[in-house]
Each structure stands twice: as structure tokens, then as C-alpha cells.
């Protein structure tokens, strides 16, 4: 199969964040950036599908500044065959604009399957995959926690509130990938060497107008410092009293 995987470069989710002096971005100094977690699950799913199903091609695509090329190389070191960099100054928080750039590139690619992460860590938006599918006019399954492809059709499981949903769909299609579906592999040394020679094409992204802009960023209000009220079962009466009288939740 010909599979495209759209990947984003985001800061390490375990970092402590500070807001930059401008007040409208995070302070990037000292932060480690890497492939977004959900995007890495999507890359793994693409590689496994092509490994299982015989000859195919996996193409990694990213919208962003030159630094995303490092992330595209990582996808290729995991096993993607080639990469496309859609260049902008910075990936905007406008998901529809990013989707337009991706759709403009992907519409002529002849892909059987286009994979995305469920959401990106920074935007936490869950927009780009579904919006790209709409712009391309292909079926879209969101938040798949299982995915099988056979005979030109896909079957996926999605988690919805209090239930699981099994869906079937024809290819070509787009799927956004949830956690738990596959553990992303670590690039091997051989993979890293091979990736250096794999093709990476860079061209301007066609974002169109940006209509969602960041006005400001702030850190969430700190919780009051925690308080230990006691030890063992002996603390239970006091806990219940506090839940009744102070927190008023009982």
C-alpha cells in the first residue's frame, strides 16, 4: 500500500514549560523537541501495515520550519521510505490552514491510506486529520485504537464514551491514531544510516489565510500546596468530615 503519515514536531511532554517574554509562545530554550507521541504511533502503524502486506511505500509529511526535517529523518530512520517537508516559518495553531497545506500535497499522491495522530501535544486540538480528510473528500475514521486492512477495506475500533465502536470503511481513507495501538520502534543504527540517503523533498506550504492566532499563553493557576491530613484508617473520619464540611462534596 501507499501510505502517507503526517507527523508533527513538538516539545517533550515531560518538560516544565515557561512562557516567553512575548507572552504568546512558550520559551523554547532548553526544551527537547521530537516527533509527537501520537504521530509516532501513526508511523509505527504504517510501517507494520506495509511490512505485513508486502511491497508498499511509507511517506512521512510535515508542515513547519526547517527543524521539522530532523523529525522527518527520524521517521525515515524508523523505516519510512521518503519524506516531504512543507515549509513555513512556524506551524500555525490554525488546524484548517495546516490541513489545506497537507491536502494540497496529498491530493495527487495516489495514497491508499493517510494516517495522523489523534491530536498533537502542543495544539491538543484533534483537527488536522479530520479536516484534511474532508478537504480530500475521503472517508475518515477518528481515534482508532485498532486498525486492520484487508482487500481494499479497513476495520477500526474507536473508543467512545462508555463504549467501543467497530467501524468499516473503503480505501482510500484517512485514519487518526489513538494510543495503545502500537509501540513505536526505536530507530536502529542501520536505520539511521539508511535514512541519511533517503529522499527528503522540501517545498513551500500552501497554508492560505491564518484565521486562528495565539493572543497569549499563560501557565494554569497553581493548586494550593497539598496537605497530608493523617495516617491509615484512623484518618478516615477526619477525611469524611472535611469532604462534608469544607469541600462540600459529600
Amino acid at each position: 500500500m501507499k501510505i502517507a503519515v503526517c507527523i508533527k514536531r513538538t516539545p517533550d511532554s515531560e518538560s516544565r514549560f515557561k512562557i516567553a517574554g512575548s507572552g504568546s509562545t512558550i520559551d523554547e530554550s532548553g526544551l527537547k523537541f521530537d516527533m509527537d507521541d501520537f504521530a509516532s504511533y501513526a508511523v509505527e502503524v504504517a510501517l507494520q501495515l506495509n511490512e505485513k502486506q508486502g511491497p508498499g511505500e511509507t511517506v512521512a509529511v510535515a508542515v513547519g520550519p526547517d527543524s521539522v526535517q530532523e523529525t522527518l529523518r527520524k521517521a525515515m530512520s524508523m523505516g519510512a521510505d521518503r519524506a516531504i517537508h512543507l515549509k513555513t516559518d512556524a506551524a500555525p495553531f490554525d488546524g484548517v490552514a495546516v490541513a489545506k497545506a497537507l491536502a494540497a500535497e496529498l491530493k495527487t499522491g495516489g495514497f491508499d491510506l493517510i494516517l495522523f495522530g489523534k491530536y498533537a501535544f502542543d495544539t491538543s486540538a484533534s483537527v488536522v486529520g479530520t479536516a484534511t480528510a474532508e478537504l480530500l473528500g475521503v472517508p475518515c475514521v477518528t481515534a482508532a485504537s485498532k486498525l486492520d486492512i484487508a482487500g481494499g477495506r479497513g476495520t477500526a475500533r474507536r473508543e467512545i464514551e462508555g463504549a467501543g465502536e467497530i467501524v468499516e470503511f473503503p480505501l482510500p481513507a484517512t485514519v487518526t491514531i489513538d494510543e495503545g495501538i502500537a509501540r513505536p520502534r526505536y530507530p536502529s543504527l542501520k536505520g539511521i544510516m539508511a535514512a541519511k540517503k533517503k529522499p527528503l523533498e522540501s517545498k513551500p506550504a500552501q497554508l492560505g489565510p491564518i484565521r486562528v492566532t495565539v493572543k497569549s499563553m499563560e501557565l494554569p493557576a497553581e493548586r494550593p500546596p497539598g496537605r497530608i491530613i493523617g495516617q491509615g484508617a484512623a484518618a478516615v473520619p477526619e477525611l469524611v468530615r472535611l469532604l462534608q464540611d469544607e469541600a462540600k462534596v459529600l
Binding site: 511532554s13 501535544f121 502542543d122
Partner: peptide
């Protein structure tokens, strides 16, 4: 909108 997995509150226009 809380972004960065709830670690940063983003004001969007």
C-alpha cells in the same frame, strides 16, 4: 483552550 496537555492555557483569537 488548554494546550500542551493542560500545561499551558492558550488564548486564541
Amino acid at each position: 483552550h488548554p494546550g500542551y496537555a493542560n500545561k499551558v492555557i492558550i488564548t486564541l483569537a
